[in-house]
């Protein structure tokens, strides 16, 4: 199980603003470990799914070019206080993480 996702979600007018931080090494497979001299294998998030009350708002497909500890921000319509927002990711090793917040 991956580390929990830090989510900040608030409603401004009729638009929900979401910011998410996902602790993850995001190894591109090109980096060489300075101590061992060995290439660090690819380890990166491939897919992120964001759901509002169980409905998919957006799906992000990522390559190795997304920065370490990925940050992502997005907006959507139709959220009300009390609604749930769930974000989950899956990486290339099959590891996953899911976190959920409630809109205030």
């Amino acid at each position: 199980m991956g580390k929990p996702i830090k989510i900040k979600a608030k409603i401004k007018g009729d638009v929900a603003e979401v910011k998410a931080l996902m602790p993850h090494p995001m190894e591109s497979g090109a980096r060489v470990d300075a101590d061992t001299g060995e290439t660090v294998p690819k380890h990166y998030i491939e897919e992120v799914v964001c759901k509002h009350n169980g409905n998919v708002v957006n799906t992000a497909f990522w390559g190795t070019g997304v920065s370490k500890n990925p940050y992502m921000a997005f907006k959507f319509k139709g959220a009300k206080p009390g609604d749930k927002l769930e974000i989950s990711w899956r990486d290339n090793t099959g590891d996953t993480s899911v976190s959920e917040v409630t809109f205030k």
């Binding site: 708002v57 799906t59 992000a60 497909f61 390559g63 959507f76 319509k77």
Partner: peptide, 12 residues
Amino acid sequence: LVAMFELSPQSV
């Protein structure tokens, strides 16, 4: 290719 986001009609 770094990222591709698929947006639902609900998205801004």
